[in-house]
């Protein structure tokens, strides 16, 4: 699983987010177009129970993600990382502010996004192939859809297991299926909520490589929620840390880091090591730093 280090994902960034909003098929035919994501003053509060104060989870999130960028979202548990992704996917709506994808607001389930949830969430009664098929956008011509599913299954190395049911495959295989299902959508924005969280360390490394590989094959903007600092440093162009100020329930953006160097990165790089320490301390004592 070697990667071509010279292929810079940053090349996508020159495309601006003033784009026309239509999906461009691209020159290579099978590529989707990476789309920009803008969080504009996003707040999310959940109604309090029995007339209590509303529980504000996210406050004043303003963030621009350029097309093709891999953005990692770090933060302590309960800081609203999933909530942020759900707002981008349209599964949930912010109480204030908007999320814009490619310049147009997200309103309801957005077909420009695809989500891979923390759990694979596969249909137990369908085989791997059918589960990936579920990701195809509605109205995809049958032959084209089949071809795409088969190609994706090859990409995630599941082609020979396509006929098995989810309970007949390992956890890592199920996660790869979930990733393939999300990719079948040809999303402009790929939303990954701790997709490798439940995997053992080695499988996780493989999956990270796979994600980079996929990102090269199918240009897309990636929002990756993770609790693993090293994963963020390996995969992301930028890292956003969510955190709360003292005595507040709402989290907002505490830090944004730009990770130096092209991928794949040397895990023992000195600069990365320093950033790793900053990130870890930022996560630990983030409330005092902001």
């Amino acid at each position: 699983m070697s990667l071509d280090a010279s292929t810079s994902v940053r090349a996508e960034e020159t495309a601006t987010d003033t784009g026309s909003g239509q999906h461009q098929t691209g020159t290579r035919g099978k590529t989707s177009q990476a789309l920009s994501v803008r969080f504009a003053n996003v707040c999310r509060a959940f109604p309090g129970k029995n007339g209590n104060e509303p529980h504000v989870v996210l406050k004043d999130i303003t963030l621009d993600v350029v097309p093709g960028e891999v953005l990692a979202i770090l933060g302590p548990s309960g800081s609203g990382k999933s909530t942020l992704l759900r707002a981008a996917s349209g599964l949930d709506a912010p109480t204030q502010g908007t999320v814009l994808i490619d310049g147009t607001p997200v309103n309801g389930i957005d077909d420009r996004c695809a989500v891979a949830f923390q759990e694979p969430r596969l249909l137990p009664w369908q085989n791997i192939h059918k589960n990936v098929e579920l990701g195809l956008p509605q109205g995809t011509p049958k032959a084209e859809g089949q071809e795409r599913v088969e190609r994706l299954l090859e990409l995630v190395e599941l082609a020979e297991f396509a006929h098995l049911r989810p309970r007949e495959v390992s956890g890592g295989m199920a996660q790869r299926t979930s990733l393939a299902r999300a990719l079948a959508r040809r999303p402009g924005v790929l939303l990954l909520d701790e997709p490798f969280g439940a995997l053992d360390a080695l499988t996780r490394l493989k999956m990270q490589d796979l994600l980079l590989q996929v990102h090269e094959a199918h240009p897309t903007t990636v929002l990756l929620v993770t609790h693993d600092v090293d994963e963020a440093l390996q995969l992301a162009d930028r890292i956003v840390v969510l955190g709360r100020k003292p005595r507040e329930t709402a989290a907002s953006i505490a830090h944004v880091f730009t990770v130096p160097g092209d991928r794949p990165r040397n895990r023992s790089d000195e600069q990365l090591g320093r950033m790793r320490l900053t990130l870890l301390s930022g996560l630990g004592v983030d409330t005092h730093r902001h």
């Binding site: 190395e157 390992s170 890592g172 295989m173 493989k206």
Partner: peptide, 8 residues
């Protein structure tokens, strides 16, 4: 399961 090809 770490090596996918084998555990498969």
């Amino acid at each position: 399961a770490t090596d996918t090809a084998n555990d498969d």
